[in-house]
């Protein structure tokens, strides 16, 4: 049973590896930050390992009441992706708030500078 599943999951490991390569490429081009992408890399690495060695995961899934390993993987992936999304949402909201403050400060400073230059 476990042997059959192991054969089934190796394409999934390849997809994880490809995504990891894309992530590395983006990192090299400085399109994303290492700090921000660490959790995503961890997620891909975890699922890549699970896909390559499904037997221990199958045992864990069975112990947790999942009859089919694929169901457990979908469930775990959705949960982890939801966590990643939450983390991204927090970062985005923080950045948005800071951007608003900076926009306001910039407008105030520009106005002061304009006035100072005009009164010279």
């Amino acid at each position: 049973m476990v042997e059959i599943e192991a054969q089934k999951y190796w394409p999934f490991a390849i997809i994880c590896a490809v995504q990891l390569l894309i992530l590395l490429r983006l990192l090299l081009r400085q399109r994303i930050t290492l700090q921000g992408s660490m959790s995503y890399m961890g997620f891909l690495a975890l699922f890549g390992i699970v896909a390559l060695f499904p037997a221990p995961t199958a045992r864990l899934a069975h112990a947790m009441g999942f009859e089919v390993l694929a169901n457990f993987l979908f469930c775990a992936a959705i949960m982890l992706l939801a966590l990643l999304h939450l983390r991204a949402l927090v970062t985005l909201s923080r950045t948005e708030t800071r951007t608003v403050q900076l926009t306001q400060d910039l407008a105030i400073l520009e106005e002061r500078l304009d006035r100072a230059l005009r009164t010279r």
Binding site: T99, V100, T103, Q104, L106, A107, I108, E110, E111
Partner: peptide, 8 residues
Amino acid sequence: VLKLCRNL
């Protein structure tokens, strides 16, 4: 006039 550089 305060000119905001993006719509807030």
